[in-house]
């Protein structure tokens, strides 16, 4: 007589427990929900991936056309290889490029007392300027004629700064190709890095240019360790 009651109490408790668990999950999913900025992020990401895909499709079409051309004969194959090489060299930073962009000149504060100045440009300062320019979409950059590659270091060595193992001295002359307005404002934004440097007495001049020329990397190219990964 008593057993069915226990059963029904057990059943009710079970349902009730599930209900509470479910309620809890719903509440936490509301809390961690989808705020507006998350949506904005997704929108930007989507746009970027779409752009990537368009570029990749272009690249694939270009390669397919080259393969077709190369199948026609030896001489065509050579030509195709040359044109592929020149395209990759452009990506790698081995060809001089020109286009609109900005010219940034950074100079140490003049020595008033003849002594060492309070603040002089450090490698990190240049590193940050370069990083800001990259973030603003710079496509090719150079410092005092040294092209910035994927492997370029910007490093303090004594009184100088080394880039691509070449010693540079101030004033530092940075060229960047990209949208001139975006590049300039990325540096000169209120509370930005140029403001900080100016506050420390460093002269930073950012000029928009309709046409600048970024030189090619002219040092030696040697890879002792990296090999193309074996596919399979």
């Amino acid at each position: 007589m008593k057993k069915p009651i226990y059963f029904s109490i057990a059943a009710v408790s079970l349902v009730f427990g599930l209900l509470i668990a479910f309620q809890f999950r719903t509440t936490s999913s509301i809390a961690g929900g989808v705020p507006v900025d998350r949506f904005q992020e997704l929108t930007i990401e989507k746009k970027q991936v779409e752009l990537d895909n368009a570029h990749l499709e272009q690249e694939a079409a270009d390669l397919a056309a080259k393969i077709e051309e190369a199948k026609k004969g030896r001489s065509q194959a050579s030509e195709v290889l040359e044109s592929e090489l020149s395209k990759i060299r452009m990506y790698a930073g081995l060809t001089p490029l020109s286009g609109p962009g900005v010219e940034v000149i950074m100079e140490n504060p003049p020595d008033k007392n003849g002594g060492a100045s309070f603040y002089s440009i450090r490698d990190e300062d240049i590193l940050k300027v370069i990083n800001d320019l990259r973030g603003a979409g710079a496509e090719a950059m150079s410092i005092n004629g040294q092209r910035i590659l994927a492997t370029s270091e910007i490093r303090l060595a004594g009184n100088h700064i080394n880039v691509n193992l070449v010693r540079l001295s101030p004033p530092y002359h940075i060229l960047a190709i990209g949208n001139p307005g975006t590049l300039k404002s990325s540096l000169e934004i209120k509370g930005g890095f140029v403001e900080y440097l100016s506050a420390n007495g460093i002269t930073v001049a950012v000029q928009q240019r309709e046409k600048i020329e970024v030189p090619a990397y002219n040092g030696s190219l040697k890879f002792d360790y990296a090999k193309a990964a074996q596919r399979g």
Partner: peptide, 28 residues
């Protein structure tokens, strides 16, 4: 693709440029 005599050189150069350009998978 079948290559001429000068193309081996071209291919080597291409390999180097690709490493720097970052378009190939590398190991080492």
């Amino acid at each position: 693709l079948p290559a001429g005599p000068r193309d081996t050189e071209l291919k080597e150069e291409l390999e180097m440029a690709r490493i720097l350009a970052g378009v190939t998978e590398l190991s080492g």
